[in-house]
């Protein structure tokens, strides 16, 4: 009975946090903002296109797969916006709440903290779908194409990656709060993902030590699954990756939940709830 009430309350918290955070992000959303959000994918895909067609003259290692370099890059880029949601939104939400002075009000409520953070992740993920779609749309004129997509596999890659990145976001959240650092942690993480997850270059082409790093990053697996789902490769090839991604997600979220508990305790011990 008590647990049921608690579970219902947590669901309500997830929903409320997602809803109101979407309102907060999108309230002053304008045409200019949409144009700005198209800018990054145009620049990235455009420069990749120039590199590929005019500098390397279309030469490509077989590891990139059969769908061409532009499809490879477009998918990598689309996924990158998810990392952004986790690292920059979930990873810094409490930092910003503390700066804005709302963290004391939210921490004073009896809500489940993990549910609250999950709500933030849902809002961030939904919001990043705009960028996600933008990358694919921008990619089409540059040569991005989907061959016999596997929709369920595509969706599971997104959900599982978002879940694992949520765990990573929780850990980043603890780091930004502890070290009172606004950007370095999130930026470092973004670069880590950019370089080591196979966003711009297939893992197989990377040196051995870099491949080791890529193995602990959930995005590596999510990307592989998504490429498989969109580029007409048999799904059976990624069963192992699906399992790893899921287990990794559970592990990251568990560690993240633990850091969330510890960070709250620590902030109250060290009187750091009302600092900037």
């Amino acid at each position: 009975m008590v647990t049921k009430v608690m579970a219902l309350h947590s669901l309500r918290v997830i929903f409320a946090a997602a809803k109101f955070n979407l309102i907060i992000t999108l309230r002053f959303f304008s045409g200019t903002a949409i144009a700005l959000r198209l800018f990054a994918p145009i620049m990235t895909l455009g420069s990749a296109w120039i590199l590929y067609n005019h500098i390397y003259q279309g030469a490509l290692a077989p590891e990139f797969g059969s769908s061409g370099y532009m499809s490879f890059i477009a998918i990598g880029n689309a996924f990158y916006v998810f990392v952004f949601a986790a690292a920059f939104v979930v990873g810094r939400v409490m930092f910003w709440e503390r700066a804005a002075g709302t963290i004391e009000a939210t921490f004073m409520t009896p809500m489940n903290r993990l549910a609250y953070m999950a709500g933030i992740m849902v809002a961030a993920a939904l919001n990043s779908l705009i960028d996600f779609a933008a990358v694919f749309l921008v990619g089409i004129p540059f040569g991005f194409q989907v061959t016999s997509p596997n929709i369920p596999l595509f969706l599971s890659s997104m959900l599982l990656t978002a879940f694992a990145l949520f765990g990573v976001g929780l850990i980043v959240n603890a780091i930004t709060l502890t070290f009172r650092d606004r950007t370095t942690t999130a930026n470092t993480l973004m670069i880590l993902y950019l370089v080591f997850s196979g966003l711009v270059c297939p893992i197989e082409l990377m040196p051995q030590w870099a491949q080791m790093i890529s193995k602990v990053l959930p995005l590596t697996y999510g990307l592989k699954i998504m490429r498989t789902s969109l580029l007409g490769v048999a799904a059976s090839g990624v069963t192992y990756d699906l399992a790893i991604l899921f287990i990794m997600g559970v592990a990251y979220v568990l560690i993240g939940a633990l850091t969330l508990k510890l960070i709250e305790k620590n902030l109250k011990k060290k009187a750091l709830l009302s600092v900037f």
Partner: peptide
Amino acid sequence: RMLYYRLTGRENLTYFADL
């Protein structure tokens, strides 16, 4: 402090009611 500036007064209160 302790209010979400981008939300309206009513939204703030509804949000906290949920929490």
